[in-house]
């Protein structure tokens, strides 16, 4: 049983929660101006990291608030709890965020700036 540390209610059994999957996926605000592949990055493509993973959790049977966790998907250790809408503070979690391929996607840029570019980025 995972013990999830809700930032408001304290540590509770995982059955009180719903896992919201990968965190920090920006919804592209100009989805009608980006390609299908770019929209698929938002809608379907997911990080599935073995190791430190940033994800969203919902305390569905408790305070019903959303929050973020940095959790190791191999050991299940919880490295950090941080508020929804913010970024992690711990260095390892920060690196995981900034080094993710998603930071370079058109969808994320479109979400941030409201602008779009016709050139597709290549890795």
């Amino acid at each position: 049983m995972l013990i999830i540390p809700c930032p408001h209610c304290g540590p509770r059994d995982e059955i009180e929660f719903a896992c919201g999957g990968e965190a920090h996926i920006a919804r592209p605000l100009v989805e009608n101006k980006i390609s299908d592949a770019e929209f698929a990055n938002y809608l379907f493509i997911r990080d599935n990291t073995k190791g430190l993973f940033l994800e969203r959790w919902h305390h569905s049977a408790g305070c019903r608030k959303w929050f973020n966790l940095a959790r190791d998907t191999f050991t299940h250790e919880i490295i950090e709890v941080y508020p929804m809408g913010s970024l992690p503070k711990k260095a390892s979690a920060r690196t995981s965020y900034s080094s993710s391929w998603r930071r370079g996607t058109l969808a994320e840029k479109a979400a941030k700036t409201g602008k779009h570019s016709q050139t597709e980025g290549r890795k």
């Binding site: 049983m1 995972l2 059994d13 995982e14 059955i15 719903a18 896992c19 999957g21 599935n48 990291t49 073995k50 993973f53 994800e55 998907t73 191999f74 050991t75 299940h76």
Partner: peptide
């Protein structure tokens, strides 16, 4: 189990 894991184990619930 409804979260990502590579641990080859889940929760008793």
């Amino acid at each position: 189990d409804k979260y990502n894991s590579y641990a080859q184990r889940g929760s008793f619930s």
